[in-house]
Design a protein around this nucleic acid. Structure first.
Length: 577
RNA sequence: GUGCCCGUAGCUCAAUCGGAUAGAGCACCAGCCUUCUAAGCUGGGGGUUACAGGUUCGAUUCCUGUCGGGCACGCCA
């Protein structure tokens, strides 16, 4: 709990007042909020409004009754009954100013909350198929997840970051096949390639790399005329080609597959690190097959009579757990579905003893939520521990022009390219700005602009200004300690800044509670705006030493909080720009 | 067709588990650098919160319906 947070104290005052009144049977929660307008005080309580119906009494009368018997407090300048019956609390100026001392003392730890109380949280995010480089569509989930993870850590959760690697299944075979064809091309000099293969340049690069390292190891089908079978259905053709590759290459197919997948995983990991995203674990889908957990969960479901055999396939009766229909676990051709491995994976997550499990998924997977929850319920888990956050799509624009993307066609802008173009700071900030359930229009041209249109600069510039003033002053921030309260900071701009600074801890808790890390960007822009306004109107480095000291303390506190917020976003806080 | 998400200023988006007069940025108009960084500041116009009902002291927020947009509906992943 933040020592500068007076809410508990205010609650105690109100509760004490209530006890003295015949309202003791009330069952309303005494809640405080920060009013939008400072005209309504520093904290506002709506208790009288809530009690009004139950007591069948005018809320203003109730509020006045409460106010009359409420004990006085050193923290408060005054309390008023306002509006329909709000109790508005105005904090004492000296107390408000103490937030500066709190910030300077705690530094990067200012705003830390204890609400997580050490609970173990698993956050799974990104989890893009390792069939190609991460592109702009993956960036949003990456930023959301990594920011939320940091926020939750600040709120005393023990966070474990995980990437689920779909390194099994057909798409991996398509990847392998694509690499093989490009590899063969290098020997034949032709461009023979399956229509629905992965066409990106990275496939060709990998093929070249393999040839350099391993020579002609996979050059075993130079005639390679199977493309000309006359099959119209491109997906059927792909299956046939995969089958062919497996039989032609034999054991070498597996090595080619492993090399191809590992190259993609490494490239993802590298791109993510540059992008400020790291994981504690890369969980392999292959593992849930090889260690028997897929079979084991299916057996578990079968023992509970929740699996039907229909037409040679195994169906999980998910409709008994409020899913629309039953889902196939094992196909009639003997192969497991993606769903089967996902059930095993989620079962594994639950067995690892987390207090909460968070999945960050693209919104296109929303139809998948009921079946996963159904499976968890069926396996005897508390599915409410699983929180699935759906991230809406990001559409990519170049100015007015929408850019279409597709992994197979190889037409996409990668994270790597994005970072090279606009930098990590702008890219991350841009992604972080929007709420997860809103579509995001990512304008590449705008993100590239090194101008005021680009919101990240506005916040960073505020930080740089603070740093610049401190540097101009020439002293050490630590030396301000103990002297920061000697002059009352009671100009309107100063009061606004103090209030905004003291909002930071609650803002952070809200981000954590509601999974809304975009609030950080809103907060930072507002704090930066107040700083810029103050800066323009007020000489910080006043000749009057006590005044200068107090103002510098405020500036140092603003700099610290801007830094804390930017750090959470994974955006740098430059001292000069 | 069914289900989920969204609809707020010209554009892109906020709005504290329902709170007081719905806020920013961009764009547009008019001003501010001999003073700590003008990547900044000040002022101005801009809204029936898609529409119609309902719930209540109070609704952008919750419920129902309509319209519009996105997504998902396979023995694909």
């Amino acid at each position: 709990m933040n020592s500068n947070n007076p809410v508990d104290h205010l609650k105690a005052l109100v509760n004490e007042a209530i006890e003295k009144l015949p309202y003791s049977s009330y069952d309303c929660l005494v809640t405080f909020e920060r009013p939008k307008s400072s005209k309504h005080g520093d904290y506002s309580c709506n208790l009288a409004l809530q009690l009004s119906k139950k007591l069948k009494k005018n809320p203003r009368v109730i509020a006045t009754d409460i106010l009359e018997v409420m004990p006085s407090s050193d923290l408060l300048e005054r309390v008023e009954v306002a509006g329909a019956g709000f109790l508005n609390f105005y904090l004492d100026t000296y107390f408000k100013q103490k937030v500066i001392s709190d910030i300077l003392k705690k530094g990067l730890c200012f705003g830390d909350s204890s609400i997580g109380s050490g609970k173990k949280i698993l956050i799974e995010f990104v989890s893009a198929n390792p069939t190609g480089p991460l592109h702009i569509g993956h960036g949003r989930g990456a930023v959301f997840g990594s920011t939320l993870a940091r926020v939750m850590e600040k709120c005393s959760f023990s966070v474990f970051r995980e990437y689920y690697v779909n390194d099994a299944g057909r798409q991996i075979d398509i990847l392998t096949l694509s690499v093989w064809y490009r590899y063969l091309n290098l020997f034949t000099g032709t461009q023979s390639f399956p229509e629905n293969g992965y066409k990106g340049q990275y496939i060709e690069d990998l093929a070249i790399n393999l040839k350099e390292k391993y020579g002609d190891r996979w050059n075993q089908n130079s005639e390679n005329d199977i493309l000309e079978t006359g099959l119209e259905d491109q997906e059927l053709l792909l299956d046939k080609l995969i089958e062919n590759a497996k039989s032609v290459l034999g054991k070498n197919y597996e090595t080619l597959k492993d090399l191809s997948v590992n190259a993609q995983i490494e490239s993802c990991e590298k791109d993510l690190l540059i992008f400020g995203v790291n994981f504690d674990n890369w969980f392999s889908e292959k593992k849930v097959f090889s260690d028997g957990s897929v079979e084991s969960v299916i057996e578990d479901l079968e023992s509970k009579n929740l699996v039907d055999n229909r037409n040679g396939a195994k169906w999980f009766k998910s409709s008994e757990f409020s899913d629309d229909k039953d889902r196939v676990l094992k196909r009639s051709n003997g192969e497991y579905t993606y769903f089967a491995s996902d059930v095993a994976y989620h079962h594994d997550k639950f067995q690892r003893g987390f207090n909460q499990i968070i999945n960050i998924w693209g919104a296109d997977h929303h139809g998948y939520v009921p079946r996963v929850k159904a499976a968890l319920k069926a396996l005897g888990h508390d599915s409410s521990l699983l929180k699935i956050v759906l991230i809406q799509f990001a559409s990519l624009f170049r100015g007015e022009q929408k850019v279409s993307m597709s992994t197979r066609s190889g037409e996409f802008v990668t994270i790597k390219e994005l970072v090279a173009d606009v930098g990590v700071d702008a890219a991350r900030y841009f992604y972080a700005m929007r709420k997860n359930d809103q579509h995001l229009d990512f304008d590449l041209d705008l993100a590239k602009k090194k101008s005021s249109e680009n919101p990240v600069y506005y916040v960073q510039y505020a930080h740089a200004r603070c740093a610049s003033i401190i540097s101009k002053w020439g002293g050490k921030v630590g030396d301000l300690s103990g002297h920061e309260l000697q002059v009352s900071l009671d100009q309107p701009d100063e009061i606004s800044l103090l209030r905004k600074l003291s909002d930071y801890p609650e803002m952070l808790e809200n981000c954590c509670r509601d999974f809304v890390p975009h609030n950080i960007t809103v907060y930072l822009r507002e704090l930066a705006a107040l700083l810029h306004r103050y800066y323009n109107a007020t000489q910080i480095l006043s000749a009057d030493v006590p005044i200068r000291t107090s103002r510098l303390s405020l500036i140092a506190a603003v700099r610290q909080v801007l830094n804390n917020g930017l750090t959470l976003l994974g955006v740098s806080a430059p001292d000069s720009m």
